[in-house]
Design a protein around this nucleic acid. Structure first.
Length: 105
DNA sequence: GGTCTGACTAGGT
DNA sequence: AACCTAGCCAGAC
């Protein structure tokens, strides 16, 4: 079992309930590392062997962040829509409505 | 050890 | 609202 330095982020991400989203910066703050928003995204690309609801993490604008793999963006949106998260025609999520707040469902 | 990169952000225009 | 910039920090070379 290999130790992964991003485990703290994963622990936070695992707590995001279905139908809710969290931002990279939010995950970093909840993990006690407020200046590591970029590392959250970087760590997720390394998280293949972990069962994580990675699709519930979006950027501060409520958009799905770009990455190398084509099609991954559509996949993430599909997964969220299955949880009844709504997207605007421009592919944005209304964070004031869907952002996760600790202690709240 | 310097430089570049990137699933990020906040603040200014 | 879109665009730009500076600040951010671990990894890869």
């Amino acid at each position: 079992m290999d130790f992964n330095p991003y485990k703290r982020f994963y622990d936070v991400i695992r707590k995001i309930p279905p139908g809710r989203v969290a931002t990279y910066g939010q995950v970093a703050r909840l993990a006690g590392m407020p200046a590591h928003a970029r590392q959250v995204g970087y760590g997720l690309s390394h998280a293949k062997d972990y069962a994580l609801p990675w699709h519930r993490v979006v950027n501060a604008k409520g958009e799905i962040s770009r990455r190398g793999a084509p099609g991954a963006k559509e996949k993430q949106q599909t997964l969220l829509e299955k949880e009844r998260v709504e997207f605007s025609p421009q592919g944005r999520i209304n964070l004031s409505r869907y952002q996760w707040h600790v202690g709240r469902e």
